[in-house]
Design a protein around this nucleic acid. Structure first.
Lengths: 333, 333
DNA sequence: CCGAAGGATGAAAACGCTTGCATGACTTCC
DNA sequence: GGAAGTCATGCAAGCGTTTTCATCCTTCGG
């Protein structure tokens, strides 16, 4: 059924339109230079043959792959999805395709995926994890690809970074909770660089406010619903009991609320809970969940804007774009 | 900073290793034929130069793009994500990359994305929506790419389909609810082909069981949390009131449960609720949510298995792979 | 009416690989 | 001990475009 043999080439179109291949190529890449009447014949020839240009060959010749690699840890319950979605939508309008790479919760696949992206001559590599492997950082630097780190603001970006400061969140949250009168926060810390940064700055700020050291518990990432029971069991054993639990995700926060309620606790009187990510459920549950909102889609849009400017030959002067965050105060804390 | 000029080529490696480019190429593509001592020298040369093969050029020469296109409506709250994740993980191990295409809730981007995939000479196109545009179906057929339709079982697959029967779900659910003694189901029907198929067969089966016609309400997809309030308002006006609400997603089901509870209703005594997708929250909420479970990751794995067999030159005789579904009875219905 | 400028097009050389075919060096076997 | 294989490798012809440069027409100002 597949007549692989007869996939039309640019030559076929050219012949049929009575022009040379070069002209057909120009019709695609620089339409303004081909005469309207010629363009019309080419258009007809394309329709008649069902020609689809081979972008592999085209990319080889023009050194423009029109490929952007997007590397994230995972997508099943991921906070990154709005960002990915925004980017994919934007990019596809401009004729780019996005290569999706899943690096794994521990980012172990990062190196291999970066190489795969570079091997395809990706014009940009968009990362959401931290590249800890030094040779890989070097490789990235040595290529002409735009590198955009997202969802964090490294002090020394490889190229460009767009995201927000996890440290600022930790500090902001500490102030917020102190302001609301909480005394004994309990941090549920995901096993990742970002969560750690939020934790560190929270602890620092909390101490700075003259309070003691918060209790904490480490859990595997991605943090979600399933962990809630585990966390709850750990939490009830604390003495003195915490008065607010700081979670790494809204799903975990919600799970914890359910466990607490099942145990007869009132939220937030007996235990307050803070989530992260401002998931669509956070504002709808009873009680509604206090959460940290980050505009993921905006991160995606800004990233695309940067790489389009690069593609247009512009020099990017702002290496770091901070999209900020908001603490959304609701009923749970 | 980017010394674009000096990206090492296969020739550079060859020279350094004292062999010809062909041998280096074979080192990558058919390692068993190169002598161990030569392989060692090549390996060293690669390390020394930091060579990364240009897979664009390689693909052009070998007519193997090692690109698989995965086209889904959206990923932000998507039920497809487990499938995508399973595929991406599998594929990347085999040196494939996945191109992620977002067709939009209404699949309007499908045509353009299929063309983009074909233009890149994708070896496979994995669809999760229905290709309604006929020229596009033809285009797909005329190419040698493997086409895998997922999350549904069309009667006439374009090539191969792996998924489950929405009709079977509708019917199964009707029997299930009838068996539990419900009398007045209310269907919340997403605006999509799949949801419609489930609805149709539900209605048919329900009538076949000697019951009347269920009430129903159409909502936009993707169905999720935010719709709950809307649905609830519509639902309370029904007379006689339904005794079970059938939702297109667990998130919507959960939202509805919250609205109902806020209005003082007991679940499932006053109103039972069924979700779809068996989201991780379904088993954890109070009450736990009765839902339909589909093994999304398995769909991904089966799809990859098919395309690897194709790539290996095998002929696929089973055009339709049914992974089935399960109704998970919990507290909410 | 001529030279210059500009516009549309074609010829051909890349782009960086893969692979069929050929070659030469070793083994192996009767 | 020579014919017949193997094995490891090199040569060179593509793969389907893009793009530079040159060419050929027009058009137009003086």
């Amino acid at each position: 059924m597949n007549d692989r043999s007869s996939v039309p080439k640019i030559e076929d179109v050219a012949e049929r339109a009575g022009v040379s291949a070069s002209t057909v190529s120009r019709f695609y890449n620089n339409p303004s230079v081909v005469a309207p009447s010629t363009a019309k014949r080419i258009r007809e020839a394309i329709a008649a043959t069902g020609y689809v240009p081979d972008l592999l060959a085209g990319g080889l010749a023009s050194r423009r792959s029109r490929l952007v690699a997007v590397l994230v840890p995972e997508i099943s319950h991921s906070i990154f999805n709005d960002t990915i979605e925004a980017m994919a939508n934007q990019l596809s309008l401009d004729g780019y395709i996005v290569m999706l790479g899943l690096t794994g919760a521990d980012n172990s696949g990062m190196k291999r995926l970066i190489e795969a992206a570079l091997a395809r001559r990706a014009e940009a590599v968009i990362l959401s994890g931290i590249v800890s492997d030094n040779p890989t950082r070097e490789l990235l630097r040595s290529r002409s690809a735009t590198v955009i780190e997202t969802w964090g603001l490294p002090e020394k970006p490889i190229d460009v970074a767009v995201g927000f400061s996890h440290a600022a969140i930790g500090e902001g949250l500490a102030r917020f909770l102190a302001g609301r009168g909480y005394r004994r926060p309990h941090l549920i810390v995901g096993d990742g660089e970002r969560a750690r940064m939020r934790r560190d700055s929270f602890v620092r700020a909390w101490k700075g406010l003259g309070r003691g050291k918060p209790t904490e518990m480490k859990i595997a990432i991605p943090t979600h619903f399933g962990h809630a029971r585990l966390v709850w069991r750990h939490l009830v054993e604390l003495d003195p009991p915490p008065d607010v639990a700081v979670c790494g995700s809204d799903l975990l926060a919600q799970g914890l609320i359910i466990e607490a309620q099942a145990a007869g606790k009132r939220i937030p009187e007996d235990l307050a809970v803070v989530g992260f990510g401002n998931h669509s459920l956070a504002g709808e549950m009873r009680p509604t969940i206090t959460s940290i909102d980050v505009d993921g889609a905006r991160i995606g849009r800004e990233a695309v804007a940067v790489l389009k400017r690069r593609a247009a030959g512009e020099t990017i002067s702002e290496r770091v774009i901070d999209v900020g965050f908001r603490i959304i105060a609701r009923e749970s804390a």
